[in-house]
């Protein structure tokens, strides 16, 4: 009786990327929502309140049906993993629980092969996408208002989340890049991320 739900886990660095991480989850959810999907976007409850530089997770669930597993705290089987800071790939098993055939999006200046060297379980991946999101979009001013259930004050998708989600739409068919452009503040950034992404199929 289990339901088909597409899961996304986003890894970001605490405090200075907390907002960008959440914005990436909101961009995907809002774009998929425009495309007619049922969506859920939320912060990991145990990672908050966040500490400076400590890895933290943001999640998205996308489905063609109303999502039944809304209250499950974490995405146990992410189909898509987004890494907002490439040093995170070295530290931990970022693909844990991923079903075979998943995708990995990394904010990096390195090539897919250079990143893959740090990923011992890369056989789970169908593809890897590298994009220099930090080079395309400047870091947006940090705003803490949206954390812990607050309402976002900063415009969603002004910083590195825009090119990252643009790049993700290249391999993920749950949301369309046109809809990401519609919902993001930095529309140019989404398009540049989509255009400059290096995709390597595995």
């Amino acid at each position: 009786m289990s339901q088909e739900v597409y899961e996304v886990t986003i890894w970001a660095r605490g405090v200075f990327q907390d907002m960008e991480g959440r914005h990436a989850s909101l961009l995907m959810a809002n774009a998929a929502d425009l495309g007619g999907k049922f969506v859920q976007a939320w912060d990991d409850y145990a990672d908050l309140p966040d500490r400076v530089g400590v890895p933290l997770r943001k999640y998205v669930r996308l489905s063609d049906e109303e999502i039944e597993m809304r209250f499950v705290y974490v995405n146990n089987n992410p189909n898509l993993v987004v890494i907002m800071d490439d040093t995170i790939v070295k530290g931990m098993n970022i693909l844990r629980g991923m079903p075979k055939g998943g995708s990995l999006i990394v904010n990096t200046r390195r090539t897919p092969d250079e990143i893959l060297a740090f990923i011992p379980n890369k056989e789970l991946l169908a593809n890897i996408v590298c994009v220099d999101a930090s080079g395309i979009a400047a870091d947006a001013a940090i705003d803490f208002m949206g954390s812990e259930g607050g309402v976002e004050v900063a415009s969603v998708g002004a910083g590195i989340s825009a090119p990252l989600v643009g790049a993700a739409s290249k391999v993920c068919d749950m949301f369309d890049v046109k809809n990401v452009v519609k919902v993001a503040a930095n529309k140019d950034g989404v398009q540049k991320g989509f255009d400059s992404a290096q995709v390597k199929a595995l």
Partner: peptide, 13 residues
């Protein structure tokens, strides 16, 4: 105190 803090964060804003 978590988790209600967000309510007061929002109201103070």
């Amino acid at each position: 105190i978590r988790p209600y803090t967000g309510i007061m964060m929002e109201l103070s804003k």
